[in-house]
Design a protein around this nucleic acid. Structure first.
Lengths: 159, 159, 159, 159
DNA sequence: TTTT
DNA sequence: TTTT
């Protein structure tokens, strides 16, 4: 009935932009959110929370976010499940974001490094005809490295 | 850095109260949270979100919440993982609540039914010595039906 | 940059539905939100928080909410100011809701009383041509009892 | 019953640290929170939201926040009222924070400037005996520039 | 009275 | 599989 999540944390990797068969943009990344206090102060701890962003914001995230950057995410918790290749039900919990704020600009000290970004971080997103074309052409499985099903479906669209 | 979740939904079952070896109360339940809109309006959908409550609120929840009741939960998202019996890492996402509100009183129409509740829903919680005794004696695995590890540890205490 | 409020409380009065000159529906009510703990446990305390709802939800609120009912409100804090009749700047803080949940149905025990509601609480909202007509004709000041300016403007529309 | 606010914005001025007669630290500042979209895109708009922080976090804020800095604030909305010198009831709405996150460190480009900060931003807070002494001695009215009553009372303590 |  |  009401489902609201707000997170501030850092990207563990560069975001991954994919497209559904119908050409809808979707970006995934994981946010490392430090816990307020570790139990016995042993080591510092964080929760690693998967985030999904759709449509125009997906492209903004892909263009302006990078590994290590600080971001605020507002959305809702979603629990999906599917049967893995051993016939076992696997549950996946993600935050479906409807609002992402970039809390560090690209000219901060925190460049994510690793060199050789082919993509200009400040270029506006490519025109949408191109994007939906490119998107439809992208036949890699979007979420496979998370053990999620091969094909991202337009049924997953949250709105 | 910031991690806040607010949910309103209905319990899918009666809450389960357990105790850590050190005698700390912990209650688990799952909240069914209706999604704002199903994609193609096919059938009604909900997210089923596991909630963990600690200490005094754990006992309040066990005493006053029942299957089917409406509740508001405020807390943070937590992602745990453990190795299952096939040596595979399993990820568990829960909401660790620091605030639970009961939005339906026990004398509402929505009793959860199923008859024969031995426990008086309006009785004050039993004295804590008894409870922590009983708790420490309870050697069933608390989270087993979710595929979580047998023993709940005091290391899981959020504060 | 990010502005999110979530409240659960009870209406202090029946909601008031008005219309802007352009015929956009807007409803106002005040939510009494109990404080978690009074300071010295003297008497029970609450915050009385003004809420504004626009468009379709405004009409739902007017139709289904009543004084005393429990509701959840999600929105953003807004601070307006205007010059009062003594030429002094007055600040008004409200929650502009984008999501209102009715936590008690009309057939609960909590009817708000006062007798003689002419409006059927479960009737669907009147057809929109009528409403916007009636709205445009309603030339009472919408927010006057709160000391707010006489005319509600279409400039106040949040989206 | 539930009252939660999360804001991200920039301080409009340096925070002001005061102490209650009993020596409890309290800091006030205003957060400028940009609105998601101005109505007709005329000019950019923001809400200016007063924030109050108590105890240890009050001192952290006074030490590490400055005008112009980005911060995240988590807390609850509080509506106070008092009678002004014309015998008129004035309502004051603030966010009582229980969690403040500094989203820009002091060595960012965004120094707030204005020269001559006597206080070292990275020095740890002064020892608490001194602080509560200094605090108790501070008999200026803490909130006077907001038109609030002269004396801040220990009754205002939220917990 | 307002911030980037 | 994880971020500063």
């Amino acid at each position: 009935m009401l489902n609201r999540v707000i997170l501030i944390g850092r990207l563990t990797r560069d975001p991954e932009l994919r497209y559904t068969p119908a050409g809808v943009a979707v970006t995934q990344f994981t946010l490392a959110v430090d816990r307020p206090f570790s139990n016995q102060q042993k080591e510092r701890e964080a929760d690693f929370i998967p985030v999904v962003v759709w449509r125009q914001q997906a492209e903004h995230c892909a263009n302006y976010l990078r590994k290590g950057r600080l971001a605020a995410v507002e959305g809702r918790m979603q629990v999906r499940n599917y049967d893995n290749n051993e016939g076992r039900k696997v549950y996946v919990t993600e935050v479906v974001a409807d609002n992402v704020r970039f809390l560090e600009s690209a000219n901060s000290q925190n460049q994510g490094g690793g060199g050789g970004a082919a993509r200009d971080e400040f270029a506006p997103p490519a025109p949408s005809q191109n994007r939906s074309f490119g998107g439809a052409r992208n036949n890699q499985d979007p979420f496979s490295d998370d053990g999620k099903p091969i094909d991202i479906s337009d049924d997953d669209l949250p709105f």
